[in-house]
Design a protein around this nucleic acid. Structure first.
Lengths: 338, 338
DNA sequence: TTGTAGGCGTTATCAT
DNA sequence: ATGATAACGCCTACAA
């Protein structure tokens, strides 16, 4: 059996209370006995049972992570992984553990968000990849469990958010194309139920507006954030509107699909059509042509999200919405006209 | 407060014992009262406290995941992520949760492997990315906590492993080059403290042997599995031994670095030097030239590892070493001579 | 400075 | 079929 404080107490010939106090660094315990207890605990290789403790103190030092729709297909654009790395690092530094909630399985899906958290006894939750129309989102807002949302800035009590400045990112992407002399700029967006899509559209429109370029709805398509969606949208846009000389894509994966799609109909990037992506995923620096894109600091998003959540849990004041800067990364997929 | 079985008992006017039994599907409880209890539990939105339960049953339905050295740099070759996806999917299906152990932080590193597991009360652990010389490895072997190792086939009680058939993979890679007419084949390996490196070297040697090609130690370099390591090793090998016309790299990331390194000294792939990688990471299909490589089914590794661990936990017989097939994926980085 | 006693939410044992 | 009671490992009044 693994030793308990009772075993230590017996060995040290004191009460469990004293052991508990010594172990938890209380000052009202004799130096000698304390030393003795610590020594014995060490000898016995004692380690506290967190379950038992949490029953009393109602804190588990555990953060839940709700990854919606993380499946095999998310592997290419490993954005979730980068965010996860940042979260994992920061929560480790802050001495919290991370538990992954599996929301893909049907069985789990039946459970309410709240019971998911309650059962596992997590202190707070970070949520990413959730769609605006996901029923969980409602529950989350209403629940009193502290949480931080990635990419959805909900204004509620106990809810924080971190996201990239999507408007600015899309604005920079579009403006970069405009400055390059492009006048007919298509936009392959994600889907209507993504907050980032709404914001990126906003940035796109704003840039056109600021540069006196007419906004044309028919220049826009949804590529559902997938490579294939980008592929088909690009073909559709380029075929229907051959005057388009540039495409802004709301994700790199769609941009990569778009490059293939264009190639398929005899157009090359950037000679015939220029492309700017969004995300700056690993592949973007290696594909051909390398992709001009908007860099999101995914690692930092995770890192800051963990920080924010722990701040909330430990009662520190936080600014509920953190927006990280987006940055243009120039590579080969844009041709400067004139 | 969140409701407990006590609250349900009060509302249903029965004892907590009966409630517990009803909730856990025991048969010795009246249909009527059972229905009533279930209804009330539902009304109260009751969800069991896993911590309290685990105190008694000593099972947490939680799997620990020890990721060694998963940091920002692991983002490009997101192998860990793919494995994680597989694990997450399977453990979800089997109704287990996954908790990430943060072993990068110094603080955590001080803790013994065993106390890490004990504190968190995980039923078992999956371990990946650990080096042969990591002190944890010793502890793991000795400890009685069931675990599954990724890529290290230790033969111990309560220890299982899953890995790709590295010997066969390396053999296929080398043979593919030999069949292509290459006689001077360099090998950029990872590092001596990786089990996979040992095995891949074995496969490389075996292929040379089978085809009557002399094994030359000076054709081998360690690239530490990093892009930069591959870059420098390739330059070194190609400069010292200009007769080398092909390079087998123990990871795609090193292969990609190697391509750059060769380019830097005026050699192109595959015209001057052919390259075969290992892993088949996402980038390999997009870089230029696209990379001929050995495919590892990373998702499956995670999936099967989770399955194996749960099998062990639930007392089912398992074969302790699972080896998944490796498969050659032909792309553009190899030139067939004559 | 130390110990006693009670309780956290659950399940198991033994009665009834 | 149901209920009292003890136990899991820990913490925290309160008392001494």
């Amino acid at each position: 059996m693994t030793p308990t404080i009772k075993d230590i107490a017996k060995a040290a010939e004191v009460s469990v209370t004293t052991v508990s106090r010594a172990l938890n660094g209380y000052t009202d315990v004799n130096e000698e006995t304390k030393k003795k207890i610590l020594r014995i605990a060490d000898e016995l290789k004692y380690s506290p049972n967190i379950a038992a403790r949490s029953l009393i103190v109602k804190k588990t030092k555990t953060l839940g992570l709700l990854l919606s729709g993380i499946t095999r297909s998310s592997i290419k654009d490993n954005i979730a992984f980068e965010i996860l790395c940042g979260m994992n690092d920061r929560s480790g530094e802050l001495d919290y553990d991370l538990v992954l909630f599996n929301t893909t399985s049907q069985k789990q899906r039946m459970k309410s968000y709240k019971s998911l958290c309650l059962e596992r006894g997590v202190d707070g939750v970070i949520i990413m990849g959730i769609r605006l129309d996901d029923p969980y989102l409602q529950e989350i807002v209403q629940s009193s469990i502290p949480c931080v949302l990635i990419d959805i800035p909900l204004a509620e009590k106990n809810v924080g958010s971190v996201s990239t400045d999507n408007v600015s990112g899309a604005y920079q992407a579009t403006e970069h194309l405009i400055r390059g002399g492009h006048k007919h700029i298509g936009f392959i967006n994600g889907h209507a139920q993504a907050y980032v899509s709404i914001k990126r559209l906003e940035g796109y429109r704003l840039a056109l507006l600021d540069h006196d370029i007419e906004y044309r709805e028919e220049f826009i398509a949804d590529g559902s954030f997938s490579e294939n969606g980008g592929y088909e949208s690009a073909i559709m846009l380029a075929t229907k509107h051959p005057e388009i000389t540039a495409l802004f894509c709301a994700s790199d994966l769609m941009a990569i699909g778009a490059i293939q799609g264009l190639k398929n109909i005899g157009k090359t990037v950037p000679e015939n059509v220029s492309i700017v992506g969004f995300d700056n995923i690993a592949i973007s620096g290696y594909c051909s042509p390398t992709l001009t894109t908007i860099h999101q600091n995914k690692y930092d998003m995770g890192y800051r999200a963990a920080q924010m959540l722990v701040d909330m849990l430990e009662g520190r004041q936080v600014h509920p919405h953190l927006t990280l800067p987006a940055e243009l990364v120039e590579r080969q997929s844009v041709r400067i006209l004139s």
